[in-house]
Simulated assay, not measured.
Amino acid sequence: VTSMEFDHADIYDSWEDYREAFRLFAASIGSGGQLVLNADDPEVKALGHWCTGTVTTYGLGEDAQIRATGIEPIDGGQRFDLMAWGEDLGRFTLSFSGRHNLLNTLAILAVSLGEGVSVDALRDGLQTFAGIKRRQEVRGEADGVIVVDDFAHHPTAVHATLQATRERWPDRRVISVFEPRSNSSRRKVFQQGYQEAFAESDALFISVPPFRHNDRISDFMDVEALVRTVDAGGVPAHLASSPEELLPKIEAHVRPGDVAVIMSNGGFGGIHDKLLAALRARDTVNQT
């Protein structure tokens, strides 16, 4: 379990209901099973009390059984020393930036060590792991603008993605492009969280979320108010009714040296490839 905070607001009525689902999950793991928990999250760590199987913890704190020390950001990722049950297992290289990616890596290492995978195999596997689609996936670069695709659609995930982007490309402006598409991501309960997360951006472009026949408007965030608040906080913010209307706004704003982080749990109208095509066309015109 990597983290616990209220989510899937279309399914769970409250934080208490959401937490109970995790407790039931932990209790379902019997004496022959292993539960791996993020020790840096107090709610996650507490799940160990509900489990009768083997509990293994990971994190960056000293109380974690599997932890990273000597963390060093490098070009295209980070390096760290892996400590396991007090033993130094040596230096590892991860081809991703960001604290959340490091923590997820520690979770994988904890599971793998518990299953008997060798340290050398883990080190080699991490060094050659190229990642997965839609998680800080670089879709291309055109006219000096890097276009990144990410599945982030919750305030905490948005914040972590933007933080990792700044760590990976510290000298570039970070342009956020966001589609609040899912039942949960559109909810009013997350509006303040988005406001804080997008403060990490140099600019924000957001599309109006879809509304369905059985939606209650009162349950969902006010994207116009979100844009006004983010803009008032010093981050230029722009709203459009569709990806098609958003695209020319983004193209007009981005410049060589930027990174555009496109975040959605859906296809976002193919805006990634459309933006790259528009930037290539712009670059061609600039060179003639």
Rank of each mutant, 00 (worst) to 15 (best):
205 F>G: 09
274 K>P: 00
204 L>W: 07
185 S>V: 08
110 A>P: 10
285 V>T: 12
150 D>N: 08
33 G>P: 02
47 L>D: 13
119 V>L: 05
268 F>S: 07
242 S>E: 05
124 D>Q: 14
167 E>K: 00
109 L>I: 11
70 G>M: 07
155 P>D: 03
136 Q>N: 13
148 V>R: 06
68 A>Y: 00
268 F>H: 00
207 S>Y: 02
189 V>P: 10
60 L>M: 06
55 V>S: 04
47 L>F: 11
165 T>I: 05
269 G>N: 12
122 L>A: 10
280 R>T: 14
181 R>G: 08
80 F>R: 00
267 G>I: 09
220 F>M: 07
63 D>S: 15
245 E>K: 11
21 A>T: 04
113 L>A: 03
45 K>I: 05
270 G>A: 03
212 R>S: 15
135 R>N: 02
14 S>Y: 10
34 Q>G: 07
277 A>E: 13
127 Q>I: 03
233 G>V: 05
143 D>Q: 01
133 K>N: 09
43 E>Q: 12
260 A>P: 06
61 G>H: 07
197 A>K: 05
244 E>G: 11
269 G>H: 07
210 P>I: 13
91 R>E: 14
117 V>Y: 15
128 T>S: 15
207 S>F: 02
5 E>M: 07
243 P>H: 03
246 L>Q: 06
225 A>Y: 09
2 T>V: 10
241 S>E: 15
7 D>W: 11
196 E>C: 04
253 H>I: 13
47 L>C: 13
189 V>D: 11
234 G>Y: 11
108 I>H: 09
160 A>W: 00
219 D>F: 05
202 D>L: 01
268 F>G: 01
45 K>T: 12
42 P>E: 13
98 G>L: 04
226 L>E: 01
267 G>K: 15
245 E>A: 11
190 F>N: 00
